[in-house]
Design a protein around this nucleic acid. Sequence first.
RNA 1: GGGCGCUUAGCUCAGCGGUAGAGCACUACCUUGACAUGGUAGGGGUCAGAGGUUCAAUCCCUCUAGCGCCCACCA
Length: 958
Amino acid sequence: MMDKSFDAAAVESRVSALWEETGAFRAGRPERAGAEPFCMVIPPPNVTGNLHMGHALNNTLQDILARYRRMNGRDVLWQPGTDHAGIATQMVVERKLAEAQQPDRRTMGREAFLERVWAWKAESGGAIVQQLKRLGASCDWSRERFTLDAGLSRAVAKVFVQLYRDGLVYKDKRLVNWDPKFQTAISDLEVLQVECKGAFKWTRESDEPLNAAALGKVLAKNPNGHLYYFDYPVVDAAGEETGDRITVATTRPETMLGDTAVAVHSDDERYATLVGRQVRLPLVGRLIAIVADEYSDPEKGTGAVKITPAHDFNDFEVGKRHEAEGARPINVLDAEGRVFLKDNVAFFEGVESDNDHARLIAAVDGADRFVARLRIVELMALAGFLARIEPHAHMVPHGDRSNVVVEPWLTDQWYVDAKTLAEPALEAVRDGRTQFVPKNWEKTYYDWLENIQPWCVSRQLWWGHQIPAWYSPWGGCYVEESEDAAYAAALADGLERGALTQEEADGLARDPARLAATLRRDEDVLDTWFSSALWPFSTLGWPDETPELKRYYPTDVLVTGFDIIFFWVARMMMMGLHFQNEIPFRDVYIHALVRDEKGAKMSKSKGNVIDPIQLIDKFGADALRFTLAAMAAQGRDIKLSEARVEGYRNFATKIWNASRFAEMNGCARVAGFDPASVREPLNRWILGEAARAAAETAGAIESYRFNDAANAVYRFVWSVFCDWHLELAKPVLQGETDAAAKAETQATIAYVLDAIYALLHPFMPFLSEELWAIKGERGTPRAGPLALGPWPAQGVEVDEAIEAEIGWVVDLIGEIRSVKSEMGVSPSAPVSLVLVSPSARAQSSAAGWSEALKRLARVDAVETAEVAPAGSVQLVVRGEVVALPLAGVVDLAAERARLDREIDKVKLEIVKVVAKLSNDDFLARAPDEVVAEHEERREAFEERLAKLGHARERLEGV
RNA sequence: GGGCGCUUAGCUCAGCGGUAGAGCACUACCUUGACAUGGUAGGGGUCAGAGGUUCAAUCCCUCUAGCGCCCACCA
């Protein structure tokens, strides 16, 4: 006996254990050695993370694909694993250290710190995997990988070295986006533009001195969002002030300390006479040139722009063009974003000594950039060089993790020549080898790759893949896959350069400790996304030529969110094509983001995450999964409502109860049941409907229309099978008149339920697997878990005559129920059903279905008459007139009114159809089948109108 | 400044050239032997607005309004 209700929690753990025992998700099962493989790689979640709604959606969709293909006999590898998530993880551990008031990472040193991170990984890693299992993700968990595993690290080193040798990885000194909080470089993609708008206004002409305290208050809230206008005094060749001033505007006053030029546009007449002159930089005293450069936009600011090559990407370029005029980078900030002056040799170079530097240094040296900002403004105002301050809305770059303003900063970093790698990646999508679904994401992909910049891959962090580069005292840099190789290369280089004698080299080679002390390894680690970019082949064992790599690469589909198209998808394309000479995946399915109620991206830092595990606890994993699938229409973000999940929990209950009903009515599986041999119309009908639902579901899954697939299953199970097949079957199941029909119906129900479990399995794996097992306890033993199939065999055709018969019965029952309800007749009021001059077919149908009619339409008897009994309510159902003799029960005036409404409706329809059919253009230009369809509709409406009119007339006399 | 998307029932959303749909909510009725996490019936929509294309437009095109996202060199 089945339990009275579906206990999701109990079933989930039982079924999980079953999958584990049977190794159902294992790739390369021997019996599928000859099967076509199907492979996906999971977007690896942060190893120390927790499952959020985005993961739940992403993995539900992947699981639907994996299970569907597995049930269809494919050898499925869904490759799982986790990501070390460099900055994110290091950040967590550093925060925990700070919270515990323990020494920070620099104090404890690299080795000790890394131990702490590994400890944290050991402690919290694996939670996400457990959560994915709770969701039902059918990954081959035996193949789980981690981006810092030895194997994957080997792949990373090999790729880095190879790219270096190909000239596609290089070290360069240029401006990078520097995160002063984490004190590391970050890539362009990790920079978010945030709009800032200030609220302070002041002009020198206002007669009021600058109220620095008031400005300070405003800046304390938001240091950005103001435009400051500075006057720079123009000097003559002798360095004497001419009395002219040139006004520049800036949003970052503190960078003026590093100004080395002022640029104006060569066409700007206002400044034509000043080009070639110099200005004396206030507070600093440095003489800097006024240069003509096209970068300067006469429309913006004052048309004259201060040039700070060390702290602005554009200025850096302008500076390169005007190096001869002295526009060199002078760095005035340190790694933490503090003003750095005292020991700054470059800063004082060429500066007259009579300036009051002591005062400047006292005011700003060592001050945070935002503190310095206010002080510089104050000093400029006191010296009379501040012209005005105005609020100015503009975008300010912030680190996506640190959320602090990033600084363009001049450093040595490693770069990947993304432009070169991007070409094949673009080509592969352009020629359709890889396709995006929905297709419109391809434009996003093209736009980014076509304008791609060098990818800064070095990070001044400790948690990650340390860059395999070693430096020697004799100035060499050795990029090698291993320490030994690097040492060998260094010694050879030392000999070649003459920095080492053969003897010295031999000595070093014999003394590894001394060698290690001589060579210094690059301390930086690689961007997390560098290792993620290799995921589709590194997880398959590359650089070894493994059988898995051969069998499963390229993967079939990648399922991911649009937010990581650039971070991840594009880079996997680049690396896959470069290192495997082959696309990493054929399809890229881009799903929506699950957003919070305001449409904002869910993130831990915002604290707006909905916990999927809580929903699973409350409604079951199946309900959550079904909800996500049903809502995953292409092209729109998902706002999840709990009511929806509850609705699909009810759906699970419905299925459970339908299965119980089957059990109670002896619907056991019959060995060798052949759908083709079924005779009863009702059974043939449901088998046809089941086949249709299976085809619809399969088609929808294969084209990534998850919502259509879910809805097809939902409708078939509830609205077709439960509402009609089971209801119509009750008289046969619960009667004793026709044993053969009963047995056939029982067998059919068992068969259709099996099909339902299978159709449902990709969406609701726990419930379906459990019911499959329960139903498998009797009859022929199951070959294995449902997870391994089979997908319902298709091929039962829906017979038109049967369709018409069942359709008529269904409509008739509906009409009777409707009219009773509408006329205020109690459902249980005694009334018989009279067929008025029925066709032979209707008569036999009615006879055959009389029991069902009695039960479902609540009529007492089914009779036949030449004409409708006086004062009866008459219905026209698919051309057949039926009457309910309700004289005395219903108000005849109400019945007349009902018929009149009915007639009006039909007339309106006829007017619409006739209007079209009498339009010559329509007849001439519309496709024939559309015209024919309209003809049929007109005929049907007219026939219905005639019969309704007849019924209406009959009521007149009463 | 560029690009993408959205606007359909009270709410959340499907649909997409030819009869406008779902879930939830709402109303009325139903303790009928699978299921009240249920059943039956019902109310509710000039498919944002304006033009255009078409025999035919919620659907295609253009514009307008509102909302959202992504990208872009911070004067």
